[in-house]
Amino acid sequence: MNFENIVVEQNENSAIITINRPTKLNALNKNTIAELHEAFKLLETDKSVKVIIITGSGEKAFVAGADISEFANFSVEEGTELARKGHEILFDFVQNLSTPVIAAVNGFALGGGLELAMAAHFRVASSNAKMGLPEVSLGVIPGYGGTQRLPQLVGKGKAMEMIMTAAMISAEEAKQYGLVNYVVEQEELLPLCEKLASKIIRNSSVAIGAAIKAVNANYTNCVNGYSVEIEQFGVSFETDDFKEGTTAFLEKRKPNF
């Protein structure tokens, strides 16, 4: 995969996507969003890839926000379309992938960067990470899912505070609020994500995809998450992975998914 703004490294059963715009602190512009969509789409269709890690190049930033120069003069219609298309091709797209996505948050994750990290299925941060949604300081609101995903992760009150003050929080604060799962030193960030990926890889990708669908359903308007869980639980019974998993358990051996 050859891209201008991202680098994709594929190992045996995992892949790392690195946003590579170091002179812009990896800010998201239209081309980068399009390339990320293409990379996630290709990796999702590759059944050998069981986990995707998303990170930023360098030690300063995961993604320091959106590229403001691209939309500073947009009209209402253009702004609406910018948010709608971003949701469709990247942020909602990542959240609903059946392949698990881990965000390795190194340095600043601000605005669209934090929104991208929150679209991943969970997050690990380096100790120097700083996170926030500074959009109201620019006279706009988070437009890539920030007003929805942040309250789901940290609670309504804390999300309101973060959005209204436009303030950044530290990695340790993010862990305290449930925004990230782990905080490690920068050099340990990718190794820990790869260790977590190796634990995921040992399990059934089919079952994991069903679990992602069921968990996400609880956060979808007018969808009963319990009903989706029941449906996906039942569907699991006709999969080869269920047959292999239960047979291996009864035969007291490790499953071969």
Rank of each mutant, 00 (worst) to 15 (best):
48 S>Y: 07
67 D>G: 00
78 E>H: 06
69 S>P: 00
66 A>S: 08
88 E>G: 01
101 V>C: 08
116 L>F: 00
119 A>V: 02
83 A>T: 11
75 S>K: 12
63 V>F: 03
114 L>I: 01
78 E>V: 04
77 E>W: 06
63 V>R: 06
103 A>C: 03
67 D>P: 00
70 E>M: 09
97 L>A: 10
114 L>Q: 03
68 I>N: 09
54 I>T: 15
79 G>I: 06
53 I>A: 10
63 V>H: 05
51 V>H: 07
75 S>W: 04
51 V>Y: 02
49 V>H: 07
70 E>P: 01
108 F>T: 07
96 N>Q: 14
66 A>C: 02
78 E>L: 08
104 A>L: 06
58 G>K: 10
118 M>I: 01
78 E>S: 09
85 K>G: 00
85 K>Q: 14
103 A>L: 04
90 L>E: 07
78 E>N: 08
58 G>R: 11
87 H>V: 01
70 E>Q: 15
71 F>A: 10
68 I>T: 09
62 F>D: 09
74 F>R: 08
77 E>K: 12
85 K>D: 12
75 S>A: 06
99 T>Q: 07
62 F>V: 09
81 E>Q: 14
116 L>Q: 00
85 K>A: 09
81 E>I: 07
118 M>E: 04
118 M>V: 02
83 A>R: 10
105 V>E: 05
69 S>H: 13
112 G>P: 01
96 N>F: 08
113 G>F: 00
93 F>L: 04
66 A>M: 04
55 T>Y: 10
114 L>V: 00
68 I>H: 10
60 K>E: 15
99 T>H: 09
115 E>R: 02
49 V>L: 05
60 K>S: 14
56 G>C: 11
73 N>P: 00
99 T>I: 12
69 S>E: 14
95 Q>W: 06
96 N>D: 15
80 T>N: 11
89 I>C: 04
103 A>Y: 02
103 A>V: 03
115 E>C: 03
55 T>I: 12
110 L>G: 01
79 G>Q: 10
69 S>L: 11
78 E>R: 13
49 V>W: 07
98 S>K: 15
50 K>V: 03
68 I>W: 14
111 G>S: 15
53 I>G: 09
116 L>Y: 00
78 E>F: 04
74 F>A: 10
94 V>Y: 12
73 N>V: 05
57 S>M: 13
57 S>F: 15
87 H>D: 14
57 S>V: 12
105 V>A: 05
97 L>S: 15
52 I>W: 08
85 K>C: 05
60 K>L: 11
118 M>T: 01
75 S>E: 09
67 D>V: 00
65 G>M: 05
112 G>N: 04
52 I>P: 02
101 V>Q: 08
56 G>M: 11
63 V>Q: 05
50 K>C: 02
78 E>I: 03
117 A>R: 02
71 F>D: 06
93 F>R: 07
86 G>W: 09
106 N>Y: 03
108 F>I: 08
95 Q>S: 15
78 E>W: 04
50 K>F: 06
88 E>P: 00
84 R>C: 04
66 A>H: 02
81 E>F: 13
86 G>R: 12
50 K>S: 05
80 T>C: 02
119 A>M: 04
